[in-house]
Simulated scan of single mutants.
Amino acid sequence: MGYESMWGPDGVGHPADLRPDVPHPARMYDYYLGGKDNFPADRAAAEKALAANPEFRSTARANRGFLTRAVRCVADLGIDQFLDIGTGIPTVGNTHEIARTADPGARVAYVDNDPIVLSHARALMAGSGHGRTTVIQADLRQPAALLDAVRAVDLLDLSRPVGLVLAAVLHFLRDEDEPYRAVATLLDALPSGSHLVLSHGTADFIPAVVRDRVTGVYDKATAPLVGRTRAEVRTFFDGLDLLDPGVVTVPLWRPDTPPAPGADHVSMYGAVARKP
Score class of each variant (00 low, 15 high):
258 P>R: 13
118 L>Y: 09
57 R>P: 01
9 P>F: 04
123 A>S: 14
5 S>W: 02
224 P>C: 05
124 L>F: 11
150 V>H: 11
219 D>N: 15
183 V>C: 14
252 L>D: 04
21 D>R: 07
274 R>A: 14
64 R>N: 05
141 R>H: 03
101 T>A: 13
190 L>K: 07
9 P>R: 09
63 N>W: 01
216 G>R: 14
250 V>K: 13
270 G>S: 11
113 N>T: 12
216 G>Y: 12
126 A>W: 06
167 A>G: 09
223 A>P: 05
141 R>I: 09
99 A>K: 12
129 G>A: 03
19 R>A: 14
242 L>T: 13
262 G>S: 10
269 Y>M: 00
195 H>S: 00
4 E>C: 00
229 T>M: 09
132 R>E: 12
62 A>V: 12
174 R>G: 10
34 G>P: 07
92 V>D: 15
87 T>W: 05
72 R>D: 15
216 G>H: 11
39 F>K: 06
76 D>Y: 00
167 A>I: 14
4 E>M: 04
225 L>C: 09
136 I>N: 06
187 L>G: 10
118 L>T: 03
93 G>Q: 12
188 D>T: 13
5 S>P: 09
243 L>K: 04
101 T>P: 01
259 P>D: 04
266 V>Y: 12
252 L>C: 10
7 W>S: 11
93 G>N: 14
239 G>N: 11
234 R>K: 13
14 H>G: 02
123 A>L: 11
196 L>A: 02
128 S>V: 01
69 R>P: 06
52 A>R: 06
131 G>E: 12
133 T>E: 07
244 D>G: 02
115 P>V: 08
131 G>M: 02
75 A>P: 02
144 A>T: 14
269 Y>H: 08
112 D>F: 08
33 L>P: 07
159 S>Y: 01
225 L>Q: 13
141 R>S: 10
124 L>I: 04
113 N>E: 13
137 Q>N: 10
75 A>G: 09
46 A>D: 01
22 V>G: 04
213 R>V: 00
38 N>T: 11
58 S>R: 14
186 L>Q: 11
159 S>P: 04
41 A>R: 08
254 R>C: 03
12 V>E: 15
96 H>V: 00
